[in-house]
Design a binder for these strands. Sequence first.
DNA 1: CCGGGAACTGGAAGCGGTTCCAGTCCCGTT
DNA 2: AACGGGACTGGAACCGCTTCCAGTTCCCGG
Lengths: 337, 337
Amino acid sequence: MAEGAPRRQPTLDEVAERAGVSRSVASRALNNAPHVSRAKREAVQRVVRQLGYVPNPTARALATRQTGAAALVVSGEDPSIFADPFFAQVIVGASAALEEADLHLMLCLAASDRGRERVAELLRGKGADGVMLMALRENDPLAALAEQAEMPVVFGGRPVGSTPRWYVDADNAGGAREATEYLLSRGRRRVATLCGRLDTEAGRARYRGYRDAMLGAGIDPLPPVEADFTEAGGAAAMAALLAGHGDVDGVFAANDNMAVGALRTLREAGRPVPAEVAVVGFDDLAVARVADPPLTTVRQPITALGREMARMLVALVGGQDPTPLILPTRLVVRASA
Amino acid sequence: MAEGAPRRQPTLDEVAERAGVSRSVASRALNNAPHVSRAKREAVQRVVRQLGYVPNPTARALATRQTGAAALVVSGEDPSIFADPFFAQVIVGASAALEEADLHLMLCLAASDRGRERVAELLRGKGADGVMLMALRENDPLAALAEQAEMPVVFGGRPVGSTPRWYVDADNAGGAREATEYLLSRGRRRVATLCGRLDTEAGRARYRGYRDAMLGAGIDPLPPVEADFTEAGGAAAMAALLAGHGDVDGVFAANDNMAVGALRTLREAGRPVPAEVAVVGFDDLAVARVADPPLTTVRQPITALGREMARMLVALVGGQDPTPLILPTRLVVRASA
DNA sequence: CCGGGAACTGGAAGCGGTTCCAGTCCCGTT
DNA sequence: AACGGGACTGGAACCGCTTCCAGTTCCCGG
């Protein structure tokens, strides 16, 4: 906290006065806008340096009607959803892109009513210049809020049931299809899917990809075993799957967390991977590399997803009209399949 | 974006006018401050509801000199440090605590010069009501910035070489000692440590804990093999350790990521865990439970760490003077040791 | 019926910038 | 020497909300 100087931060008025110019000129000099003579511009800069003046962002925000911040809101019924390393990677990308545009990142975990209310206030009260929305579920109240927001909104992944104007998504269906086709191409026939939450578009799309691949190969898809994208959920779903279809020889899990859970269940059930059951995940999180056996998985460019969301938002804030983006996925073959 | 109504957000003036009161009264009614008659208070509330009025946070911030936001800054020479799931958990805790105080969370990944500069501006320009600082390294430029900041600063973990006035930390040395003592108690004698970066206080403290335990048992500690807290680093360090001391029978890794890397190296080297080499980690991240074998590790309450940092900051912002906190750790025994 | 204090009220002064706009200045032209 | 125009300049009006303070109003005991 403050040590010596109880002196307030210098204001632009003080800078102007010391530099012997008016506040307007000082302001222009600061933002190096035109209509400032060389001499005065330098005078202002000198005083700024000498006083260590830093403009008050709040005042600037009020005057320009721009907050200088973008919000990333992660929906979920439970804050622990955020513990998924997926989001951390998104943030790394988004943060870098926002930094380029000199925007700050506000992070909102909209996991409670209170949290959603705060997001609503943010949206309606212009508490940020724009918002990135992720992890929406079916009938997510945030979707409605975003609809009415008079503020740029970019979706990360698409919400269920509607296609927003601006979004960045991975090719979930395509990746899932590729994963399933790979399993089929290795001679697996009784291929099941541990699908993610079907109240999310990612879960649905990945299931569609699985189903299309199966149908394309002329094999009846097995009924999806739904889990919640967590390791524990994947483990439980795998157990359920073994109970119902003990003869599966291939499993496409809709994300790596679930795949790792499945791996654990299979190990405990004494079913060697990939000898008896081949497993493919989705995401290519760090855990995929570390799993035993290392996980064959569909890599989606998560950091790029964050980066592109942020760039899209920056473009929107800048008055442009960017087009939605679908990022490609790529199968990474390791030992599990 | 805006669909129909090009109508601006209503302002407090409009609310006041429609409610037939002055702006001051409207303001007081809004913040339910005293000195407003029941009738007018209700009139204001009615209009607010009917207009869907939301106060402009920027204007409020300017007037109250409070931004309504707290920043969490994560230092690092590379944004990828943030991919460590550790931070996500901190955020879950911090976010919840800030929500209670109705503060927003700004996340700053100070991984570049530009990033640090922005943090500096935040600190000097009063862009937030307070700051939480994490992952500082030796001679971290952020430490100096924090020093001069006329703003509450809470440290997550202690910086190297100095003890700040306000911080929340885990009992790193104690946890490391417990881990090492556990290994010793199980009959291991050639116990080594894969220490984390020794330019961080956490790395040092955990090394001290290891050393103290060894000395306490009358055994010469092995020279620490330093790694960077990553899985890859842990794997490499383990390889180096095997090359130098092929006869180790116990390893304390200063975090779970490194422990998992060590597990991988040991598996590849054909050294069964825990039969030949017992491994203990630190953190108890999700990966510990999933590792093969499941990792015995020192759990630190990461979410609580975030929560307590945020609470401490809230207290500081509220003018109180909280005391530093050291959170206890606890050994979680699984199969790897 | 009056005095006095408590409860309310609203005008006005900020908070610290940005930006519009009406002037000034300074030159090169005519 | 008067003139037109572009480059500068600074006064003043915001941006939208909080809060101080000087009044008003209201109510109650005397």
